[in-house]
């Protein structure tokens, strides 16, 4: 008898801090159990940059702050059956979304970049320029959550979610038994 097909998982970090990927590693030795059930396709963990085939589960960390994030997210939606938003940035924009609420400005994105690269009091930027290399992806007017751009199937809340929460959600999802979280384990911080 042949072995059951392993599920394929892809992960990516968009406008996030990689903390959620660190939290995936917090699954610790249970990763060995998990890897008996899954193969990892495109992911920073494998350093594979493009999908090699269709995946069962796509895990997204971070929201969309530039056009490349949107491109990658849409690529994930096209190539994954189930899409999971991992962590608060993917769910509602998170820390990068702070720039959406810059006040008293008709041009909040410019104000944000000027403070970050030109006028901030603790800066040492010898070029006095906002980075504008053509290779840099274009920034969006504001930070969008993943659900603003594509349909998201599941969310794992937290900043970052604990390894336990990620493991329990993933293992139950793989077993077809995911019906939400224990209320005591839900955290948004």
């Amino acid at each position: 008898m042949s072995e059951p097909r392993k599920a394929r998982i892809a992960t990516t970090s968009l406008a996030g801090c990689f903390g959620c990927h660190m939290a995936i590693l917090d699954i610790d030795e249970r990763l060995i159990e998990l890897l008996k059930l899954v193969d990892i396709d495109r992911s920073p963990l494998t350093d594979i940059k493009r999908f090699t085939q269709r995946c069962d589960i796509g895990i997204i960390e971070g929201g969309c702050c530039n056009e490349e994030n949107v491109h990658v997210l849409r690529d994930f939606r096209r190539n994954c059956d189930v899409l999971i938003a991992l962590g608060q940035c993917a769910i509602m924009g998170g820390l990068p979304a702070m720039r959406n609420a810059i006040m008293h400005s008709d041009d909040p994105l410019r104000e944000c970049l000027e403070e970050a690269y030109i006028s901030g009091p603790y800066l040492r930027n010898t070029t006095h320029n906002i980075p504008n290399d053509p290779a840099l992806p274009l920034m969006l007017d504001k930070v969008y959550s993943c659900a603003d751009v594509v349909e998201i199937d599941y969310q794992i809340p937290g900043c970052a979610p604990s390894g336990d929460v990620i493991y329990s959600a993933l293992s139950r999802l793989l077993a077809g038994k995911f019906h939400g979280f224990d209320r005591e384990t839900i955290r948004f911080d």
Partner: peptide, 24 residues
């Protein structure tokens, strides 16, 4: 936040974010 935990607010959202910009 605690009410969201108790009521299990973990599903993908169906509402838009209004993102107010009121002065601090």
């Amino acid at each position: 936040q605690a009410m969201a935990y108790r009521l299990d607010m973990t599903q993908p959202t169906k509402f838009p974010y209004l993102e107010p910009c009121r002065a601090l």
